[in-house]
Design a binder for these strands. Structure first.
Lengths: 147, 147
DNA sequence: CACAACTAAGTTGTGCACAACTGAATTGCC
DNA sequence: GGCAATTCAGTTGTGCACAACTTAGTTGTG
C-alpha cells in the first residue's frame, strides 16, 4: 500500500465499507420480521448465550462504547425484549437480561443464519478464510498507535 | 455457512463491521489534521480527480443515496471546500466543484495514503488479495434479491 | 399540446458510532 | 479513616447511513 492511488475501487477501506454495508442490507432484510436491527440482533445473541450480562461485558464483546450501547439497550427495553436492573453488589453496574418476550424471540431467530446463508450463497471455506483475514487486519489496525 | 454458530468472533459480518470500524479509526486519526471525516475525504478524492461532478455521480461512485450525500456536501460547503451550483442545462441537477481552499487541501492530502500505510504496516500483496475478496463478496451480497 | 412517468436533489425520522463529558460508586493507598 | 484515582453507566453533540417522502424539473406518449 505504498502507491498513491485513490480511485475508490482500489481502496481497501472503501471495499471494507461497501462490503459491510452490503452485508448490513442483507441482515436488515432478514431481521425485519423480528423487528431487530443488526446491532440489536448481535446483542440479543450475546444475551441468549449468556442469560444475563452487565452492560460492560456486552460492550466488550461487541467492541462498542457506552455511548452506542446505552441507547441501543434502552430501545431493546422499550421493545420489551430485555430488562435492565442496577446490580445490588455494585451499584455502578447494570445487569441486562432477556424478558420472556426476549427469550421467545430466540425461537424465531434460529432461522436467521440459514436465511443469511441462503440469501448470500456463500461457501463455508471462503467465509472462514475471509473472516480470518479480516480478524488479522482488525488486530493490526487496533494495535496501530494513533496520535 | 450452513452451521448455526452465533459466537460473535465467528461471524463474518461482525468481522467486517469490526475491521471497517478499526480502519475508520485509523483514517479518523490521520484525517484530523485536514478537518475531514473519512466519507468527506472520499468525496474530496472524487472531486480532485474529476474537477466537478453532479451530486448524482458522486453518490453513484460512493454507492450512497442522497439522504447521506446531501448533508455531507452541505457540510463540505459550510467548511468552504466545495461549491454547489444548480446546473443551467438541467435544473434538477446540482454540480459540485472544489473551491480554491478545496484544491489547496489536496496538497496536504497527498500524504494521507502514505500515513495510512505507515500506521497499519500492511503489505501490498495482502491488501490486494483482501480487497478482491471483499469486492467479490460485495457483488454477491448486492445481487442477493431481498424480499 | 397535455398529462403521466420518471428523474434529481433534498427533507424527515430512526438508528448506529464515537468523542468528550458528567455523576455516582468503588477501590487503592497512605 | 480519608482522599485520590479508577470504574461504570449514561448524556450530549456531531456525523454517517438508510427508508420513506416531497418538490421541482424533464421526458415520453397519446
Amino acid at each position: 500500500m505504498t502507491t498513491e492511488t485513490y480511485r475508490l475501487d482500489e481502496m481497501i477501506c472503501f471495499a471494507l465499507h461497501s462490503a459491510s454495508r452490503a452485508f448490513d442490507a442483507v441482515y436488515r432484510s432478514v431481521l425485519k420480521d423480528l423487528g431487530l436491527t443488526y446491532p440489536q440482533y448481535l446483542v440479543m445473541l450475546v444475551l441468549w448465550e449468556h442469560g444475563e450480562l452487565p452492560v460492560k461485558r456486552i460492550a466488550e464483546q461487541m467492541r462498542l462504547d457506552t455511548g452506542t450501547i446505552s441507547p441501543l439497550l434502552k430501545r431493546l427495553e422499550a421493545a420489551g425484549l430485555v430488562r435492565r436492573d442496577r446490580s445490588a453488589e455494585d451499584e455502578r453496574s447494570v445487569t441486562v437480561r432477556p424478558t420472556e418476550a426476549g427469550l421467545d424471540l430466540r425461537e424465531r431467530a434460529v432461522a436467521v443464519p440459514h436465511r443469511i446463508a441462503e440469501a448470500t450463497g456463500l461457501e463455508l471455506a471462503d467465509v472462514t478464510e475471509l473472516r480470518e483475514r479480516l480478524q488479522r487486519l482488525t488486530a493490526i489496525l487496533s494495535a496501530a498507535d494513533l496520535p
